[in-house]
Design a protein around this nucleic acid. Structure first.
Length: 571
RNA sequence: GGGCCCGUAGCUCAAUUGGUCAGAGCAGAGCGCUCAUAACGCUUUGGUUGGGGGUUCGAGUCCCUCCGGGCCUACCA
């Protein structure tokens, strides 16, 4: 038994996330957590809402609420959606928690003591009308290069030229449109990542099993131009973790908070502390996951995230932990994902294009989405959601291959033998062939899951389901029943035993359906099949069961077309 | 501008990292079965691997070039 620490990139507090966000971190992380638990490993799976930053403040203002209240509400919304999708977090925390305040300040102080933080003075656009400093991309104006009127302070979308906000002609606030912008001096803490460059490089170089996608992004940042740049880790905002020593002011940092990207990954640790406190456990119970001097030396830590998050997880966050000089657990494996596109384009929050988490659950059960999303997860390149493909996958894989298998077996048994596992008869060569195939495919499934090759695992799982149908076809219990009812009983006994077997194997992908199957077969608590023959004899003769209702209803062409229209986006 | 990734059957994706005839699922065609959600099983059609050039005994895989798509470029998160 191993100890596995799993974190998913934190969903930003600002609004309901779409399916592309879900499949890019939380869902595959949940698959991993469920699988690892099923294999008997001790798992700590944490996630949280990422609540700080300018967009949260603006969204709260837009909703006419204090930002704390807005975050309270949105956290509950996101937590509810996470439950709806059966995301099995041990704890779903908040980056605004007291635990994160304390830990973020603690780490900043350590970095300061180690000479890895310094105060720098810089000049930044300030909008009097908005009463706030504006991040570069919140300043809009005319591009000095091409004359495009809606260029942003970081880059002109039209001619792709990189800009400074001060270069814009007729700059205005993207928030209010105010033009009374002025440059003001402001002081900020900078994390001196450049001093940690060689340590980070050595660490990245040691990760030989990481995908190219991950290491190449990290190396790019390490080596591009003048190498890894120091990074400002504070902002002039009111909502956030105050940039101060624990309980004491930090001279020059009055009224400033830490930058959201400094405190967000620290929340991985803090969320584990939140878990401990919520459960009444002592501090040692979370520290054994995160401190290599307090038990975490044998922990395997896996992070899940979209590719846009890679630089922060390969460089900034490790720099924070390394630079503290304290023995914090660093990530062992990063599983990063590409993007999911929607029907020939991108998901768009602003245009309402694509399916969002709340909408998805309002039209179909979570398992349908989980199966499609996981079996099409953008592992190697961007992938594409189409309604036709979704309908075909759900109908074929879930309804026809798995659902119908359960249906035909249980109904046949009920009609011929009643709702209990029939005894008698012998297993022969046909069953031997099935055992051979199942044991081969099971090993392959486990191999793919261990390596988190999710698409391949899904393919293998489907093949395991299909093997049940193949077996029924070749054993033909309906024919055997006429000549030799005992033989038919033996066949059906094995087929019935396949149902809890499938339930256990499928649970990481489709937990609700798996549970329904276990319940119907009265086989709750079935363990992972360590020995195939034992597992397929688990339901003994006379064990009662009930015929489950339709496990997966098919998606009709009418529904598909209706949804296709409904989610195509405004305009 | 710079960097990275991708392009394989009508569709969604594989191909043990340069090595047998480029494989699966879906869709299409044919046959079989009748227990089942008109479900299942078997067989089968379909590819000059985006175009062109090169290296090699051998290229989907490496190099060059062109075409098409995507991502990153550090103050959105």
């Amino acid at each position: 038994m191993a100890r596995i620490l799993i974190t998913s990139a934190l969903p930003y507090i600002n609004g309901v996330k779409h399916l592309g966000n879900l499949v890019g971190s939380q869902l595959p992380a949940d698959l991993c957590a469920r699988y690892m638990r099923a294999r008997g490993h001790e798992v700590m799976f944490v996630c949280a809402t990422d609540e700080h930053g300018t967009p949260a403040e603006l969204a709260a203002a837009g909703a006419g609420k204090p930002v704390a209240e807005y975050c309270d509400e949105m956290h509950e919304v996101q937590a509810g959606l996470a439950r709806g999708f059966c995301l099995s977090f041990d704890h779903f925390g908040r980056s605004s928690s007291p635990e994160n305040h304390a830990l973020t300040q603690h780490l900043a102080v350590k970095l300061w003591e180690n000479g890895l933080i310094e105060i720098r003075t810089e000049r930044q656009m300030y909008s009097q009308a908005d009463g706030r400093f504006l991040p570069d991309r919140y300043v809009e104006g005319i591009c000095p290069e091409c004359g495009y009127e809606r260029a942003r302070g970081d880059q002109c979308e039209n001619c792709t030229r990189q800009l400074e906000p001060t270069e814009l002609i007729a700059p205005r606030s993207a928030i209010s449109g105010a033009t009374d912008l002025e440059l003001r001096e402001t002081k900020h803490l900078y994390l001196l990542q450049s001093k940690l460059r060689e340590r980070l490089r050595a660490w990245i170089d040691s990760k030989t099993d990481w995908p190219v996608l991950t290491t190449s992004i990290a190396r790019k940042w390490l080596d591009d131009g003048e190498g890894l740049q120091d990074r400002g880790i504070t902002r002039d905002l009111s909502w956030g973790i105050p940039a101060q020593f624990p309980g004491a002011p930090w001279e020059g940092m009055e009224g400033k908070v830490f930058y959201v990207w400094f405190d967000a990954p620290i929340e991985y640790i803090a969320a584990t502390a939140e878990w401990a406190h919520a459960g009444g456990h002592g501090d040692e119970s979370w520290r054994r996951w995160w401190r290599t001097d307090e038990g975490a030396q044998d922990v395997r830590y896996i992070q899940f995230m979209g590719k846009d998050n890679v630089p922060f997880h390969t460089l900034s966050f490790p720099a924070t932990l390394m630079g503290s000089g304290e023995p914090w657990k660093l990530v062992d494996y990063i599983k990063s994902f590409n993007y999911l596109n929607y029907d020939g384009g991108q998901f768009s929050t602003s245009q309402g294009r694509g399916v969002f988490m709340d909408q998805a659950l309002s039209i179909l059960p979570a398992d349908y989405w989980r199966w499609w999303l996981l079996s099409h997860v953008p592992e190697t390149s961007d992938s594409e959601f189409t309604w036709e493909n979704f309908q075909a996958s759900v109908n074929k894989d879930l309804a026809d291959v798995l659902g119908n298998f359960v249906s035909r077996v249980t109904k046949f048994c009920r009609a011929r033998f009643g709702e209990a596992v029939p005894g008698g008869g012998e297993w022969g060569a046909t069953e031997e062939a099935l055992f051979q195939e199942l044991s081969c495919r099971l090993a392959s499934y486990e191999g793919h899951m261990d390596a988190m090759e999710i698409r391949k695992a899904a393919q293998e799982l489907r093949a395991l389901w299909a093997a049940g149908n193949e077996y029924l076809q070749s054993a033909a219990p309906w024919a055997a029943y006429k000549e030799d009812p005992a033989r038919a009983a033996a066949i059906i006994r094995l087929a019935l035993n396949l149902i809890p077997f499938y339930a256990v194997l499928s649970a990481p992908f489709i937990p609700n359906a798996a549970e329904a199957l276990q319940e119907a077969m009265k086989a709750e608590g079935t363990p992972w099949p360590e020995d195939l023959r034992t597992a397929l004899s688990a339901l003994p003769p006379d064990h009662e069961f009930s015929v489950p209702g339709v496990l997966f209803a098919k998606i009709s062409d009418e529904s598909r077309e209706e949804w296709q229209q409904a989610f195509a986006g405004r305009r």
